[in-house]
Amino acid sequence: MSWLVLIAAGMLEAVWATSLAASKGFTRPGPTILFVISLTLSMAGLARAMTEIPTGTAYAVWVGIGATLTVGWSMATGAEAASRARIALLVLLIGCVAGLKVVG
């Protein structure tokens, strides 16, 4: 169950990171509210997962999921350029995150 909570928390990390950028320095209320809610839920999920998953592993997985989804979303929406190298690096990152689960 902790792994599912951690995965959801990592996904929420991508939501808050994206909404933070969309808030334009907290000047847009909708993205700002989404940022606060998703940040709170993401941190609560990470904290919950850390009760059963070692801190280093939980944090690395949380960041890896959030970073991969954030970059993937940015490339999908055209906010960042996609390239073979970037996609390959994201695949490697996903592999490393999965590896932490396998050995943990």
Rank of each mutant, 00 (worst) to 15 (best):
M1P: 11
M1T: 08
M1L: 11
M1S: 14
S2M: 05
S2T: 09
W3R: 00
L4K: 12
L4G: 11
V5M: 01
V5K: 01
L6N: 00
L6Y: 00
I7R: 05
A9R: 04
A9P: 07
G10T: 02
L12Q: 04
L12Y: 01
E13G: 10
E13H: 10
A14M: 10
V15D: 06
V15N: 05
W16N: 00
W16Q: 03
A17L: 12
T18C: 08
T18H: 12
S19F: 09
S19Y: 01
S19M: 11
A21D: 15
A22Q: 15
S23T: 05
S23W: 04
K24V: 02
K24R: 14
G25L: 03
F26L: 06
T27P: 14
T27A: 08
R28N: 15
P29Q: 06
P29L: 02
P29H: 05
P31A: 11
P31Y: 10
T32P: 06
I33S: 08
I33M: 11
V36R: 09
I37L: 07
I37G: 03
S38T: 03
S38M: 07
L39G: 13
T40E: 03
T40G: 12
L41Q: 03
L41E: 02
L41D: 07
M43N: 13
A44L: 14
A44H: 02
T51N: 02
T51F: 01
T51M: 07
E52L: 10
I53K: 05
I53Q: 10
I53V: 09
P54T: 06
T55P: 00
G56C: 08
T57Y: 10
A58Q: 03
A58H: 06
Y59L: 04
Y59P: 10
A60G: 10
A60E: 07
W62N: 01
W62G: 06
V63E: 10
V63D: 06
V63Q: 05
G64Y: 03
I65L: 03
I65S: 01
G66D: 07
G66W: 09
A67C: 14
T68I: 10
L69H: 01
V71F: 09
V71K: 06
V71G: 08
W73Q: 15
W73P: 07
S74G: 15
S74V: 08
S74F: 13
M75F: 12
A76G: 09
A76F: 14
T77N: 12
T77F: 07
G78I: 08
G78K: 06
G78T: 07
A79D: 15
A79G: 15
A79F: 13
E80G: 06
A81I: 13
A81P: 05
A81Q: 15
A82E: 09
A82P: 13
A82V: 04
S83I: 03
S83C: 10
A85V: 15
I87D: 02
L89Y: 13
L90V: 13
V91C: 09
V91K: 14
L93A: 11
L93V: 11
L93Q: 14
I94Q: 03
G95P: 13
C96G: 14
C96H: 10
V97P: 04
A98Q: 05
A98F: 00
G99E: 00
G99H: 00
L100M: 12
L100N: 03
L100D: 07
L100G: 01
K101S: 04
K101A: 04
V103Y: 14
V103S: 13
